[in-house]
């Protein structure tokens, strides 16, 4: 999934976190953004790669893109939606 060219409004790095803190960090960061704001999440490992985009979608947010970076981590772009909390 290629990410569109958007400038994120906020960035978090959860490569050092484990479940459930990976999504706790993401959820709080999304809640701190205005509706429509874009969050860039840097993540690593199978578990967050599976859970974080899915949990964000479950709450009503939009997954804009997911890219693999050269250092082996992933860059997830999320848009905060009104429904999500």
């Amino acid at each position: 999934m290629r990410s569109p060219r958007v400038t994120p409004d906020a960035r978090i790095d959860i490569t050092a976190e484990v479940c459930p803190m990976t999504f706790v960090r993401t959820k709080i960061a999304l809640e701190r953004l205005p509706v429509g704001g874009v969050l860039e999440v840097r993540l690593k490992g199978d578990e967050p790669l599976r859970n974080v985009p899915e949990s964000a979608r479950d709450l009503g947010h939009t997954v804009l893109g997911l890219d693999r970076l050269e250092d082996g981590t992933w860059r997830l772009l999320l848009r905060r939606e009104a429904a999500g909390c």
Binding site: P20, F23, V24, I28, E31, L59, C85
Partner: peptide, 18 residues
């Protein structure tokens, strides 16, 4: 606070403001 309340922060209706 985030560490202590991590589990319930995951709940749909809660979050930081809650």
């Amino acid at each position: 606070q985030i560490q202590r309340y991590a589990r319930q922060l995951l709940l749909r209706d809660l979050g930081e403001k809650g």
